[in-house]
């Protein structure tokens, strides 16, 4: 339903002025190709600065690519960016357009601007606010809400006036578990639903319901909700598969995390050897090891001098974060597990 080919966008270099350092030319998306299928939850996973938002802005018609094509439901979005607004609903990272409205008015106004008449906009507003548990705070302005609640209110606005494609840029940032669950069950219900206005054209296809494109840097969310995920690094898609398929690539490895009390006991030769393979972040070392190596490493650090210096350790099967690192992802930080 969404085909992307050769999408490239370069931000021009900025010259430094009056002591401020300049920035070199950045290729924010580099020859990106994607195929998103109808009815799936497709994810873009990558650390901050990987080019996820730039890619999404090009898919939603907010930014013109330098090169490449975007086709959504048969419409050329590069040539006709204004059509994107009639195919998809977009939840961006900024809420400043809605901040001073009440939750109810934000949802209603967005529905009106999505082409609903007043009666329909109000009916859908009420249904969505009920569904997301926002009815009790419907009369409060967004800027008076917590970050997670505000995000949920913006998500509600995105749902009023249904669209066959939902583009969500980090929708659950700042949300508590209850709000997250509300988001995913709302998404799930829309996927299961039959016959939104657009899809009613073709009953057979209508059975697949809403498609979701999700931007995230949260690996747990990516592993649990996504059907397929494209891993982005420095503007390139370095892998695209189901989460399980991606994890198979590092199936032979175990993640070992060691946290030292103060300094690592480098006088222990085995620990000194481990250091060369560790990614260090302060007192924390992260290692990806073969199972036997992991067993040996755990044996080392749980005995003798090393154990005295050890604060904590964990052993885990690999996550999408390990996949990202194994694929050569450059950023050592920026993906979160929550």
């Amino acid at each position: 339903m969404c085909a992307v080919r050769g999408l490239t966008k370069t931000y021009a270099a900025v010259r430094g002025r009056r002591g401020a350092p300049g920035t070199p030319e950045v290729r924010a998306t580099d020859d990106v190709a994607l195929d998103i299928r109808r009815g799936e939850i497709f994810g873009l996973l990558g650390p901050n600065g990987a080019g996820k938002s730039t890619l999404v802005r090009q898919l939603t018609g907010l930014m013109r690519p330098d090169r490449g094509s975007v086709e959504i439901l048969g419409h050329d979005i590069v040539a006709h960016p204004e059509r994107a607004a009639r195919i998809l609903a977009y939840l961006g990272q900024e809420s400043s357009a809605l901040d001073e409205l009440t939750v109810a008015l934000a949802a209603e106004t967005t529905g009106r601007l999505r082409g609903l008449d007043l009666r329909r906009a109000r009916a859908e507003r009420d249904a969505v606010l009920d569904e997301l548990g926002l009815a009790p705070i419907a009369g409060r302005p967004l800027k008076k809400l917590s970050g997670g609640q505000r995000r949920l209110a913006c998500f509600a606005a995105a749902l009023v006036g249904e669209r066959p494609l939902l583009v969500l840029d980090e929708p659950t940032t700042g949300m508590d578990p209850v709000a997250r669950r509300a988001v995913w069950s709302a998404v799930d219900r829309r996927r299961a639903e039959h016959g939104t206005t657009v899809l009613a054209v073709d009953r057979r296809r209508a059975e697949h319901g809403t498609t979701v494109l999700l931007v995230t840097h949260n690996v747990i969310e990516a592993e649990t909700v996504l059907d397929r995920v494209a891993v982005l690094d420095q503007g390139r898609v370095i892998a695209c598969d189901t989460p399980a398929g991606l994890k198979e690539r590092v199936a032979g490895e175990v993640r070992v995390e060691l946290v030292w009390r103060e300094n690592a006991p480098m006088q222990v030769p085995e620990v000194a050897a481990l250091r060369q393979r560790a990614v260090e972040a302060g007192r924390r070392w992260t290692l990806r090891l073969a199972p036997e190596e992991a067993r040996a490493a755990v044996a080392t650090v749980t005995g003798g001098a090393a154990f005295a210096a050890l604060d904590d350790f964990t052993l885990a099967t690999p996550s999408l974060e390990d996949v990202y690192l194994a694929l050569g992802g450059a950023a050592r930080q920026g993906l979160v597990r929550a």
Binding site: R38, H75, R86, R114, G161, V198, V201, H208, D227
Partner: peptide, 17 residues
Amino acid sequence: APAAEDTGAGRAAELGP
């Protein structure tokens, strides 16, 4: 996982209002 289909369907879908 949803069925793989339709990416090159050719026929443009109706636009929202």
